[in-house]
């Protein structure tokens, strides 16, 4: 598999604060990565370092096969950090043309990418007249101008309204479906869960988990049940098989097990015991639950 970015033992100190702590990771082509972490966990600093805007304290990173200088490699990367940064006095088109000059790609791409993000009809409007959602979409258009090998998005839906969030999420899916590698830093766990194939979890500048979204939830199955008498339900469910944990939360019975389980068997068992449920769901531990568990330590 082709490696797009590899980081080896990266460290960054801000004074005494150890913002990135001996971090190593590899980004493979074709995957969609989500970077999760509480505020101040070093996500943005790490991205800033590999994008050359923050100076590392020690360690190494290399783009692609490492034969290009970082700024040359960045011409094959598309990235947006925090908020959309453009010249307010220029129009959308002029801003993108400037990026074309920097990235050395033909102007023809400008219209193509504006079309993709749905801003073609506003291309002659000045950037300062745009709403935040439009600014963010323009930023994505700009990051895509060079048809990048990897798209890096740091909190792309921050501060957007529900429509804006939805538009951005659709865009990300569309881009991902075309085979572009994506690295998405976000606090929005459902966003990552919906879009990403892999997750990296960071806390205090360290990597806590690095693997597939599926893998983070492990082998744990959770069964959600609901019936009129939860206490009675609980007693019967506990007879069915030895569960790890059976709790009642928010009007539902949650049964957790690490062994494979068929819900139809459980349902049959309940019916035999004269219990009829109005809710029965088998699910994996959600990313949110896993994330909170991981970062709480």
């Amino acid at each position: 598999m082709e490696t797009i970015l590899s980081i080896q033992n990266l460290n960054k100190f801000y004074g005494k604060l150890h913002a990135v702590n001996n971090l190593s990771l590899h980004i493979q082509k074709g995957n969609v990565y989500g970077i999760l972490g509480p505020n101040g966990s070093g996500k943005s600093t790490t991205l800033g370092i590999v994008l050359e805007v923050v100076n590392k304290t020690s360690g190494e990173y290399k783009w692609f096969d490492g034969n290009l200088k970082t700024h040359e490699a960045l011409k094959k990367v598309g990235a947006i950090i925090e908020r959309p940064n453009f010249y307010p006095f220029m129009t959308a088109q002029e801003n993108l043309e400037l990026v074309c000059k920097i990235k050395e790609v033909p102007y023809a791409k400008v219209d193509e990418k504006l079309e993709l993000v749905g801003l073609l009809d506003r291309k002659n409007s000045k950037f300062r007249t745009f709403s935040l959602g439009m600014k963010q979409r323009l930023a994505i258009a700009s990051a895509l101008l060079n048809d990048p090998e990897i798209l890096i998005l740091d909190e792309p839906t921050n501060g957007l309204d529900p429509q804006g969030i939805h538009q951005i999420r659709d865009l990300i899916r569309k881009i991902a479906s075309q085979g572009t590698t994506i690295l998405l830093a976000s606090h929005l766990l459902d966003e990552v869960e919906k879009v990403c194939s892999h997750v990296l979890v960071m806390r205090h500048g360290k990597m806590l988990y690095n693997g597939t979204v599926h893998g983070i939830s492990g082998g744990t199955n959770i069964i959600e049940l609901q019936s009129t008498d939860l206490q009675q339900l609980k007693t019967v469910v506990e007879k069915f098989m030895p569960f790890e944990k059976v709790t009642i939360e928010e009007g539902k019975l949650l049964a957790q097990t690490n062994t494979p389980i068929e819900t139809s068997d459980l349902n049959r068992f309940l019916v035999q015991n004269q219990i009829y449920v109005n809710h029965l769901v088998k699910r994996k531990n959600s990313l949110e639950e896993q994330f909170l568990e991981l970062t709480a330590k």
Binding site: L51, E52, V53, K69, T70, H71, E72, L74, K75, V77, A79, I80, I81, R83, N85, F86, Y87, P88, V99, I102, K103, S142
Partner: peptide, 21 residues
């Protein structure tokens, strides 16, 4: 100073302009 206020210095670097360029 505008490059700082607009955050475009950062974006220029991310887009592939080196600091020396």
């Amino acid at each position: 100073t505008n490059e700082y206020t607009y955050g475009t210095l950062k974006q220029n670097l991310i887009d592939g302009l080196s600091k020396s360029e």
